[in-house]
Amino acid sequence: MTTMQVLFLIFAAIILGSAFKVVTTKKMIHAAFWLIVVLFGVAALYAMLNAGFMAMVQVVVYVGAIAILFIFAVMLTRKELLDKGPALNDNKSIAAVLSLLSFGGLYMLLRNWSGFMNMAPALPETDMVEELGTALVTPDMYLLPFEIASVLLLAALIGAVYVANEARSE
């Protein structure tokens, strides 16, 4: 086993273990913090795949904004910050069936796939960030998805401003 494989197994174990804690822990805030561990683990996987830009964006956007928003939501909606509650609700049997089905399906799909043994192709020596930036603004590559995503975000922004204005005028 190479060092990279050992590192991958460690990070995968961290991600899976923390993801399990996210859904089973009783305190809401703890779930949010375990989620942050998961997100850091995913960032580490990106970094191992030579996608440093994705790793940093993962930390900035998911840890720095979304996870903190989660914590905020929990802090503002709960009367007691040390709020405890049952971790699982009544739908656990349906959830178990669904997750077994999807995991089984993935297993069936990947059982005969030979890609596990392939080595990753060598990366070009160019600056990856530059390649990514160029790809995002080249018309025959990813310009359209990029612009559609921007419009989507803009719509969300305008919606937020509209809602805020409505609340003030009342």
């Binding site: 913090f33 440093g52 940093m56 720095g64 904004a65 600056d127 990856m128 960030v129």
Partner: peptide, 24 residues
């Protein structure tokens, strides 16, 4: 790093996290 400036922002978000942890 070729994304050092993003790294600067990412490290800042860990600082934010530590303050929330301490406060809560």
């Amino acid at each position: 790093l070729n994304v050092a400036m993003l790294y600067l922002v990412a490290a800042g978000s860990i600082g934010t996290l530590s303050v929330i942890m301490a406060g809560w």
